[in-house]
Simulated scan of single mutants.
Amino acid sequence: MRVVMFGYQTWGHRTLQALLKSRHDVDLVVTHPASEHAYESIWADSVEDLARSEGIEVYLAKRPDAQLIDRVRAVAPDVMVANNWRTKLPRELFGVPRLGTVNLHDSLLPKFTGFSPVIWSLISGATHTGLTAHLMDDELDTGAVLVQRAVEITPSSTGTSLVYDTLDLVPEVLEAALDGLEHQTLEPVPQNLADRTFFHKRSEQDSLIDWQWPAADIERLVRALSDPYPNAYTYFRGERLRVISSRVSRCIYGGTPGRVFIEEDGGMVVVAGADAHRGQSHGLVLDVVRTDDGVNHAALDFFGRGGGYLTCLP
């Protein structure tokens, strides 16, 4: 089949790699210009560079325009494939191919529609994430599902490990979706949009630790924002402090959320949870923290005997 691909960053790069290894012909690749945005300058394998190295025509765009629509129509693709395209594609574009446009989304739709789904899945306490191939329609990530594969979220999963897990599913899911469309062996399944959850783009504010959260929720936030993501952070005595490694305490600790309290099993306990004053909450044990100079510190060494508070403001 003749394919036009829309993609960006490592997700688009992996998708183009899979297409190049398939029996299909990629006639045009559409991608975004490079960006310095915090969430776009990481996982930054270049779709443009890969396409050009293979002699494939590249169209750079921030969002679709009439010229791009005309170019796609001229190619007359059998199918379009999108992965991590950052703006909405209009019907005048996604409806061009005779078999439609397949979007790859790294969640188990209709859950975690929208942005940064792997990170939000881990933060929220979901038990699984995965990869969905669906037909594109007029709304974001709402089209009928073609193929889904799941990945378990374990107590040791990080945002980084789950991204790799879902990226590894791209060749299998894409091949199954394209073969099913070409040979009419797949029946697209409409999503139950009553079950939809829709998450916004992440910003720096979303990495700020709220010590009113239960310790288990903060611990997941720390794992979700593993390197190379902007780490979960807090403030101590006016300075920003990133939390690199943490765990839920064995013991129950009472008091005021954010209080740097006492040593437990080699780490420093911070009181956490909106009900901590009732003496019914676990604390968060900090093991490794990072100062703004990029240096990692054992939390027990950094805080010493404890005292003071971790806060949401400098």
Rank of each mutant, 00 (worst) to 15 (best):
Asp206Asn: 14
Arg220Gln: 03
Ala133Asp: 07
Leu178Pro: 04
Tyr233Asp: 06
Ala150Gly: 05
Leu135Trp: 04
Pro110Ser: 07
Val163Ala: 04
Gln191His: 05
Arg202Asp: 03
Pro228Trp: 09
Phe115Asn: 11
Thr166Glu: 07
Lys201Ala: 15
Glu182Arg: 14
Val170Trp: 06
Thr113Asp: 01
Leu122Met: 12
Leu108Ser: 08
Arg149Ile: 00
Glu239Lys: 14
Arg196Leu: 13
Arg242Asn: 15
Glu139His: 13
Leu108Phe: 07
Thr113Arg: 15
Ala150Gln: 15
Ala194Trp: 03
Leu181Gln: 13
Thr160Leu: 09
Asp227Ile: 01
Ala232Arg: 05
Ala232Ser: 15
His200Thr: 08
Leu108Tyr: 09
Arg202Cys: 08
Lys201Phe: 10
Pro171Ser: 10
Ala216Trp: 10
Leu225Arg: 12
Gly143Asn: 11
Gly143Cys: 09
Pro214Glu: 15
Ser124Pro: 00
Tyr164Leu: 11
Ile218Ala: 03
Ser203Arg: 12
Glu219Pro: 00
Gln191Trp: 05
Ser107Cys: 09
Glu172Pro: 00
Leu135Asn: 11
Tyr229Arg: 10
Glu152Ser: 12
Asn231Tyr: 02
Ser226Pro: 01
Leu178Gly: 08
Pro214Ser: 11
Thr160His: 14
Leu131Gln: 06
Trp120Tyr: 15
Leu131Ile: 04
Arg149Asn: 05
Thr129Cys: 12
Asp210Thr: 01
Asp217Asn: 06
Leu225Asn: 14
Pro230Gln: 10
Leu167Glu: 14
